[in-house]
């Protein structure tokens, strides 16, 4: 299922190899091989607790890998941390600020922590970053008085303090209203237009689908899929759905053609456990089955008609990413929105 992104190491913003993190006997990240191409908007998907944040912490040198190699922007991490991190902006698992300082003072402090950031342009850069996330009006307000969404924006502003080659955003739309979510999306797009690689983690599929060019899917610490969105989509099975009262006849026809409407499809890469195969036998029931490449949809219709099956509806559906991700990550996957 994993689709390798073919790219030379220098074209990769992030590359991990065999990346593993264990806490005691529990393996949180297991043998992860991420490849994030430069210039991509890379969605990092997975349910809560699947190891996304731990992976990001290891990428940024906050946590040590138990095993495996990491390279970020072509440099080995965490050995070259000091040279790499100034080129990386990050929002990690929610914003963290001093509540007793204003938004602007918080950014000043974090910028002063970066020994490479030029002091002369600091105020200008802070003002610009605040402007970019729409917080200029609240720059001098204490962060204590910020709403969750404002803090989130401030966190993104922090990632934008300096020109970055890579921006890592962990759940950037957490706590944002729909308007804020849209703004973040357009911000990410504009960053990508400037050539910045954006690595966005989310448990929200819709978010990833709308703004990413690439995605990887984590499940229980393991990488279960990776590639461009199109690659991921095409990896999903195409399904046919037939609405018919003659369920038994239709089932016979489908079976004769090599389609399996009643049971989970064992041949395709994706288990078809979602659409209502269980309701077979009722008048006007929808029969659904994965479509093997060898069978043309029109042949199915012709055969059904030839066998006198009454067809009320017929459709060919390409699997949605949602189907794919549910299939990959199990029923626990949070598919809100």
């Amino acid at each position: 299922m994993t689709t390798a992104v073919i790219a030379s190491p220098s074209e990769l913003a992030i590359k991990t190899d065999g990346l593993t993190k264990r806490f005691g006997r529990q393996t949180v990240v297991d043998d992860l091989a991420l490849s994030v191409p430069r210039g991509s908007v890379f969605g990092f998907l997975g349910p809560n607790g699947s190891g996304k944040t731990t992976t990001i912490r290891m990428l940024l040198g906050l946590a040590q890998a138990s095993a495996g190699d990491i390279s970020v922007l072509g440099e080995r991490m965490p050995q070259r941390l000091g040279g790499v991190l100034p080129r990386v902006g990050a929002l990690i698992e929610g914003p963290g600020f001093y509540p007793f300082l204003s938004g602007s003072a918080n950014l000043h402090r974090l910028d002063s922590a970066d020994g490479f950031a030029p002091r002369g342009t600091r105020s200008e850069r802070v003002a610009h970053a605040l402007d970019r996330v729409g917080l200029s009006h609240a720059a001098d307000k204490k962060v204590r008085a910020y709403s969750l969404g404002m803090k989130q924006r401030l966190g993104i502003a922090n990632a934008l303090l300096a020109p970055r080659d890579l921006i890592v955003l962990d759940e950037p739309t957490n706590g944002l209203d729909p308007q804020g979510t849209r703004e973040v999306r357009s911000l990410i797009r504009s960053l990508a237009d400037e050539g910045t690689t954006v690595f966005v983690s989310s448990h929200l599929l819709a978010e990833i689908e709308q703004m990413c060019t690439h995605a990887a899917v984590m499940r229980a610490g393991r990488l279960v899929a990776q590639g461009t969105l199109d690659e991921l989509r095409s990896a999903g099975a195409t399904r046919v759905s037939i609405t018919t009262p003659d369920v038994e006849a239709a089932t016979r026809v489908l079976l004769a053609l090599g389609l399996d409407p009643g049971l989970p499809d064992a041949t395709g890469p994706v288990a078809a456990s979602v659409a209502g195969a269980a309701s077979a036998g009722q008048p006007g029931t929808i029969l659904s089955a994965a479509l093997p490449e060898a069978v043309a949809p029109e042949d199915i219709v012709a055969k059904l008609v030839a066998d006198g099956v009454r067809v009320r509806g017929f459709s060919v559906d390409h699997a949605s990413l949602e189907d794919l991700f549910v299939a990959l990550t199990g029923e626990g996957f949070d598919v809100v929105q």
Partner: peptide, 14 residues
Amino acid sequence: NTATLRYLLVSPVG
């Protein structure tokens, strides 16, 4: 505790 530590380290403060 205020979660600022990770941002300082990522800045990177060293």
